[in-house]
Computed example of a mutant assay.
Amino acid sequence: MANKYQRILLKLSGEALLGEQGHGIDADILDQYAEEIKAVQAEGIEVCVVIGGGNIFRGVKGATAGMDRVQGDYMGMLATMINSMALQDALERKNVHTRLMSAIRMEEIAEPYIRRRAIRHLEKGRVVMFGAGTGNPYFTTDTAASLRAIEIEADVILKGTRVDGIYDSDPEKNKDAVKFDTITGDEVLNKRLNVMDLTAFTLCRDNKTPIIVFNMNIKGNLKKVVCENQSIGSTVVWDQ
């Protein structure tokens, strides 16, 4: 069976790396994510990853506590680099070739982000991680994920979360919440569902980039979405 997608961008939240801990990075979660990515990459899928930094620092939260917003956002970008480096190490310990690219120049630990170079790494079978967001304050890692996915012509954005899709209300607070298997972008906007921030979502809409929201914490789910054509999570589609 042919794979449904050839090139994917996986968006992970920094908070997911907390696991059962109150702070930092849970080694078991990190290892599980690396194993999931390795399984997909072994099927010939070109994989790139964007990770948030919320387990270490959130710029917006820092700003609301009195810190300068720009300063806080740059600190958040550095947090995404820490998470990206941790995932890179976990993957390479599993013999998966990787490249870490940063939107902020820090040559000692990462390559500068260059679109053509990123695409070439993917074509050579390397897992590519995009760190430091867009390199600009006031933009989230969701926006960075959308921007990079469009730039490298990914077939889909896979948003790995701790819930199994998009609901009409928070399923962790409302046991009667209704899940959408497929939903249009206009419905997401009209219902004000929190799939991505508006900037990220608009980028995807303008470029007709599909989004799949699924539970990354269930083993095997990533491969089911990408390689086995199983209906996992919720898919955002765009009117043609």
Rank of each mutant, 00 (worst) to 15 (best):
A39R: 15
A42R: 14
A42H: 13
A42T: 15
I45S: 01
I45G: 01
E46A: 11
I51F: 08
G52C: 03
G53E: 00
G54E: 01
N55K: 09
N55C: 01
I56A: 07
I56C: 03
V60D: 03
V60G: 00
V60N: 06
G66E: 01
D68C: 11
D68K: 07
Q71W: 10
G72I: 05
L78P: 12
L78D: 09
I82C: 06
N83R: 10
S84F: 09
S84A: 14
S84E: 08
M85T: 09
A86R: 07
Q88H: 14
A90P: 10
L91Q: 08
M101A: 07
M101R: 02
S102I: 06
S102A: 14
M106F: 14
E108V: 10
I109P: 15
A110Y: 04
P112N: 13
R117E: 04
A118S: 03
I119A: 10
K124C: 06
G125F: 02
G125C: 05
V128E: 04
G133W: 05
G135T: 06
G135N: 13
G135I: 09
N136L: 12
F139L: 09
A144Q: 06
A145R: 06
R148N: 00
A149T: 11
I150G: 03
I150M: 08
E151P: 05
E151I: 02
I152Q: 02
A154T: 03
I157E: 05
I157P: 00
L158M: 05
R162P: 07
V163W: 02
D164K: 02
I166A: 02
Y167L: 02
D170R: 08
P171D: 03
E172N: 15
K173P: 00
K175W: 03
D176R: 12
V178H: 09
F180S: 09
D181S: 13
D181F: 01
I183Q: 00
T184C: 11
G185F: 10
E187C: 05
